[in-house]
């Protein structure tokens, strides 16, 4: 099979050649995720690292297994499976049994990407598909959070990490509530500095707001990111939660808490911006982002779960083809009524 094909270009001019490739972009994103990942390991130790490795292994192995034999290495080398596995791993609780993380990685690639026809064809963000699958399959393990600790206990692995495949996990007995859980079920707010620095319990990668923002800034400078999406999501969440906060400040958190807690920053910067599953047109992008922001606040305030970023993004992913369809730019010279 020839890998290079002559293609007929159908776009309008200008046709600029860019040196940017998928693999390059993926490397940028991986680099941008690095600080937040390291922070997650700092707080949750070796167990968290094992969870990340298991989920990446699940993703890459599935990609390798279900690719045609001749293009296996090429498909793996563009780093998309690696990135999906890492993103999924960052949204998992650090004490999750490793076999579940592995299955999650496999589900991400299998159900989130390959079934749709491979890269660029999927409707939903693969990492979030994997997470939704895990949450529906193992609801208890996926909502058991362990408290964060410092680097002194780095080499302690959670007992539940090492549960035998298909068997229940034994938890260490200490479980913690996430800031959002505390807010929803006990109306307790968490200090802003703890949220910004990531010194809270939660998923591996969603704890440190500052480092996630740093990664986002890097992607912005490298032009790998459509700034409208994070800006739209965060702006909407801040605005909407301020409104709720003014109405009832005991039950609803303020805007800063809303933005920095849970997986919002991770989702807004790294998942909603997936170019495959977000709209193409600028106007559509704004609709997409505002939709996610509104859904996040709605689910957090009125839903059964304390966190709603995952479902918000998945729902707006589903709406993306429709948004694209209705926000097509006007073809020059058409559709305007002459005065």
């Amino acid at each position: 099979m020839k890998l290079k094909e002559h293609r007929l270009k159908l776009q309008a001019a200008p046709l600029l050649k860019q040196s940017m490739t998928t693999g390059q972009t993926m490397r940028d994103v991986l680099l941008a995720l690095l600080p937040a990942t390291l922070a997650g390991l700092w707080y949750f130790g070796l167990g968290a690292l094992l969870v990340l490795i298991a989920s990446i292994a699940g993703a890459m192995l599935t990609e390798w297994l279900f690719s045609p034999a001749e293009s296996r290495m090429q498909r793996l080398s563009d780093n998309t499976a690696l990135l999906t596995g890492l993103l999924l791993g960052l949204t998992l609780p650090p004490a999750l049994p490793l076999w579940m993380a592995f299955i999650g990685g496999a589900a991400s690639i299998g159900l989130g990407k390959l079934i749709w026809g491979g890269m660029g064809q999927n409707l939903f963000n693969p990492a979030l598909v994997g997470r939704a699958f895990l949450l529906a399959t193992f609801p208890i393990a996926m909502t058991t959070w362990s408290p964060q600790s410092g680097p002194t206990e780095f080499f302690q692995i959670y007992a539940s990490n090492l549960a035998a495949p298909f068997m229940q996990s034994v938890y260490d007995g200490i479980s913690a509530a996430t800031p959002l859980g505390l807010m929803k079920f006990e109306q307790q707010s968490t200090g802003l500095w703890a949220l910004v620095s990531g010194n809270t319990s939660g998923c591996i990668g969603e704890t440190s707001g500052l480092l996630l923002l740093l990664g986002g800034l890097y992607l912005l400078l490298r032009r790998d990111l459509d700034w409208r999406i994070p800006a739209g999501i965060l702006g909407t969440v801040a605005l909407f939660s301020t409104t709720l906060y003014i109405v009832d400040s005991t039950h609803y958190p303020g805007p800063l808490f809303s933005v920095f807690s849970g997986g919002l920053l991770l989702g807004a910067i790294f998942m909603a911006t997936d170019p495959v599953t977000s709209p193409l047109t600028p106007r559509g992008t704004w609709i997409f982002a505002v939709g996610i922001g509104v859904l996040v606040v709605l689910i957090r305030a009125y839903g059964g779960f304390p966190e709603g970023v995952m479902y918000a993004i998945l729902l707006m992913n589903a709406a993306t083809p429709l948004i694209d369809r209705y926000t097509q730019p006007r073809v020059f010279g058409k559709g305007i009524k002459n005065p």
């Binding site: 579940m100 159900l111 699958f133 529906a136 193992f138 393990a141 068997m167 229940q168």
Partner: peptide, 28 residues
């Protein structure tokens, strides 16, 4: 449920895949 015809296959420590009993499990 880790069972077949109500007979437990993997012992009491099996971690059930809840999604499989729910409607999405049927589709999957």
């Amino acid at each position: 449920e880790g069972k077949l015809f109500g007979v437990s296959l993997f012992g009491p420590n099996f971690e059930p895949w809840v999604i499989m009993i729910l409607p999405p499990g049927g589709f999957l």
